[in-house]
Lab assay of single mutants.
Amino acid sequence: MFKRLMMVALLVIAPLSAATAADQTNPYKLMDEAAQKTFDRLKNEQPQIRANPDYLRTIVDQELLPYVQVKYAGALVLGQYYKSATPAQREAYFAAFREYLKQAYGQALAMYHGQTYQIAPEQPLGDKTIVPIRVTIIDPNGRPPVRLDFQWRKNSQTGNWQAYDMIAEGVSMITTKQNEWGTLLRTKGIDGLTAQLKSISQQKITLEEKK
């Protein structure tokens, strides 16, 4: 169930391209415009997507990853294993993690069937560096609404905000991946996880038929 919630949630996290980005210092504006741009692209490019579902990787690479804190999220997933990894191991892992996100997020976007969304009203940021933004996803086919909290983090150097995690039903996506990959990290280390991520990233994206 959580895996499905995570995939549905990713439908609204794909941010804007650099040329049309919203105010990078306001995570609420980023979330709002990102959702609108993403849904528009999914709707307008269905012919290309249906002809070649792996085209979704391109959308992810162009529109999402430049505005997601990939390395920060990847380091959180590694936890204690990050500090013990060599620079070469980290570089290989982050490259594999990025390719994994292209496949995983692309597969999530393949679930698009006309969903709509509501974003919580903007709250004062103050001096906060981590801000959760509640998004409610509404399914046109009558499924119950899904309420999610996207975690946005302020870059201490640039002042810009980027998304790095999502919490559904009190469970963090980062925590879920830590639990899912924990045994592999304990037995085969970061190299074993890197190899698995490379394998997963090679899987073809498949479209979910409308139910």
Rank of each mutant, 00 (worst) to 15 (best):
M1Q: 04
M1G: 02
F2C: 09
F2T: 05
R4G: 06
R4S: 07
R4D: 10
R4N: 06
L5K: 02
M6F: 07
V8M: 01
L10Y: 01
L11E: 01
L11R: 08
L11Q: 05
V12F: 14
I13L: 04
A14M: 10
P15K: 09
L16A: 13
S17V: 08
S17I: 03
S17L: 03
A19R: 14
A19D: 00
T20Y: 07
A21F: 04
A21C: 02
A21P: 13
A21K: 02
A22N: 13
A22L: 06
D23W: 03
D23M: 09
Q24V: 02
Q24G: 09
T25I: 14
P27H: 10
L30D: 14
M31W: 07
M31I: 08
M31D: 02
D32T: 13
E33T: 14
E33K: 03
E33M: 00
E33H: 04
A34C: 13
A35H: 04
Q36I: 14
Q36P: 12
K37C: 02
K37Y: 09
T38W: 04
F39K: 00
F39C: 11
F39W: 11
R41W: 03
R41L: 14
R41V: 13
R41Y: 10
R41C: 04
L42G: 12
L42T: 14
L42I: 06
K43T: 06
K43G: 05
K43Q: 15
N44V: 02
Q46T: 13
P47W: 12
P47V: 03
Q48M: 07
I49R: 08
R50F: 12
R50I: 15
A51F: 05
N52T: 04
N52G: 01
N52P: 08
P53L: 15
P53A: 04
Y55C: 12
L56E: 13
T58V: 00
T58F: 08
I59Q: 15
V60E: 08
D61K: 00
Q62K: 05
Q62R: 05
E63C: 00
L64E: 10
L64S: 06
L65S: 12
P66D: 02
P66F: 01
P66V: 14
Y67A: 04
V68Y: 09
V68C: 00
V70K: 07
V70D: 14
V70G: 10
K71A: 07
K71R: 06
K71L: 11
K71M: 07
Y72V: 13
Y72P: 03
A73T: 11
G74Y: 11
G74P: 12
A75S: 10
L78I: 04
L78C: 01
Q80P: 07
Y82A: 01
Y82D: 12
Y82G: 10
S84P: 04
S84G: 04
T86W: 08
P87R: 12
E91R: 02
A92T: 00
Y93S: 14
A95N: 08
F97V: 02
F97S: 08
F97M: 13
R98H: 04
R98P: 02
E99C: 11
E99L: 06
E99N: 00
E99T: 09
E99W: 00
Y100V: 08
K102D: 01
Q103D: 03
A104S: 02
Y105I: 05
Y105Q: 04
G106P: 08
G106Q: 15
G106I: 14
Q107P: 02
Q107E: 01
Q107C: 06
M111E: 01
Y112V: 12
Q115F: 09
T116W: 08
Q118L: 11
Q118C: 02
Q118G: 11
I119D: 14
I119A: 05
I119H: 12
I119E: 11
I119S: 05
A120T: 06
P121S: 14
P121Q: 13
P121H: 13
E122H: 14
E122N: 02
E122R: 04
Q123F: 07
P124V: 05
P124K: 06
P124A: 06
L125E: 08
L125V: 03
L125G: 07
D127K: 01
D127T: 04
D127H: 00
D127C: 15
K128G: 07
T129S: 07
T129R: 06
I130V: 06
I130Y: 15
I130L: 10
I130T: 04
V131Q: 13
V131E: 09
P132Q: 13
P132M: 02
I133D: 15
I133Q: 15
I133K: 14
V135L: 10
V135N: 12
T136N: 14
I137S: 10
P140N: 00
P140M: 02
P140K: 14
R143F: 00
R143M: 15
P144F: 01
V146T: 07
V146E: 05
V146W: 04
R147H: 00
L148Y: 15
L148D: 14
D149H: 03
D149Q: 09
F150H: 02
F150N: 01
Q151A: 12
Q151I: 15
W152C: 03
W152A: 11
W152F: 10
R153A: 03
K154Q: 01
K154T: 11
N155I: 09
N155S: 07
S156K: 11
Q157V: 07
T158C: 14
T158Q: 15
G159Y: 13
G159M: 06
W161L: 10
W161V: 10
W161F: 12
Q162R: 02
A163E: 13
Y164L: 05
Y164I: 04
D165Q: 14
I167P: 12
A168G: 14
A168P: 09
A168W: 15
E169F: 03
E169G: 07
G170F: 04
G170M: 09
V171Q: 09
V171T: 10
S172H: 10
S172I: 10
M173H: 04
M173N: 12
I174S: 02
T175Q: 12
T175H: 15
T176I: 06
K177T: 10
Q178C: 04
N179V: 07
E180G: 11
E180W: 15
W181T: 15
G182I: 15
G182N: 01
G182D: 05
T183F: 07
L184M: 01
L184C: 13
L185I: 08
L185V: 14
L185R: 07
L185P: 06
K188L: 08
G189F: 05
G189N: 06
G189L: 06
G189E: 05
I190A: 02
D191K: 05
D191L: 11
G192C: 04
G192P: 05
T194P: 02
T194V: 08
A195N: 02
K198M: 15
K198A: 12
S199K: 04
I200W: 11
I200C: 07
S201I: 11
Q203M: 01
K204M: 13
K204Y: 07
I205H: 14
I205P: 08
T206L: 04
T206I: 01
L207S: 01
L207H: 01
L207K: 06
L207T: 07
E208P: 05
E209P: 12
K210G: 09
K210S: 13
K210D: 04
K211T: 13
